[in-house]
Amino acid sequence: MAAEAPTASRPRLGLGLGGRWTRFTVRRGGRLLVSLFVLVTAAFLMIHLVPGDPVRAALGTTAPADLVEARRHELGLDDPLLTQYLNYLGGLFRGDLGESIQTQLPVGETIGRRLGATVSLGLLAFALALLIAVPLGVAVAVATRRGRRQRTSLGFASGSVVIGSIPDFLIGVVLVAVFAVGLGWLPVAGREDGAASYVLPVLALAIGPAAVLARIVRVEMTSVLESDHVRTARAKRLPARRIHLVHALPNAVTATLTLGGMLLASMVAGTVLVENVFAWPGLGSKIVESIVTKDYPVVQGTVLVYGVIVLVVNTLVDVALTLLDPRSTIGEA
């Protein structure tokens, strides 16, 4: 019998892994560059969008005029806007994030000292959220598919909505009240007690996102379990474990990761609040302090660093997506 008749949609057999990755790198890299440009420009403009004179606002109405003028000059605020922008970009390339208006310390140094605390907090919390959410979501989806175990289903649905609705800083306050103040098991605040001091902040940051993520995993998994190819896998009479973990899960992870990536990014931002609850010496407590004291260069630098972290996270998620789902072509994401 003759082979396939030619059709307009030719099978794309020749499309190797190499081609896919080249295309991915070009598209994703392009988007990353544009995002970076938007981020840097926004950070730069932030200081200029503040109504009135930022230096005057920062130093207060009582500051002598010549001091304000001197600071303005140091910051280069009396140059034309384009010159300032180019100087700012040039500074970024040298790793120079400017100087604090209040303390005159280099912003880069301040951030460098605090970055580790924030990143370790965020990564641990994300890992914990994943560890809770994925197995839980999968288990609930399998247990409750096709209307089985209505009570489990209802309990999970309402539980995850309730927990997901509690802001992480409130969870933090409750955890402090119970485990630090009430029971005295763990430190109330700070990062001086090593591993013990991590427990509560990480929990506070992870619980809410874990609930939301578990919900997403469950919904995605439930719909994948109904799909045609899972029916095919069942028609092959494969063991249940293999059907759920090898055939269903990877297809649910694709959609989950897309949403989970945004969740991870929001966890990065969530550190701001949690750090303030636990007086955590990270970027989050610094940025709030700087917004209140109107130390714009510090805010600018911190926002930039947070933004870069988010962009890195998003890029990693897209890489993972491409690894997991051979079809994914980034772009609309």
């Binding site: 938007v38 932030m46 990014a265 929001s266 940025i287 917004i291 805010v299 926002v303 933004g307 962009l311």
Partner: peptide
């Protein structure tokens, strides 16, 4: 691009 940045980060920028 904007959607990729978490809301709280945008809030902090705008609050500034």
């Amino acid at each position: 691009i904007l959607v990729a940045f978490p809301g709280l980060l945008l809030v902090l920028c705008l609050a500034t």
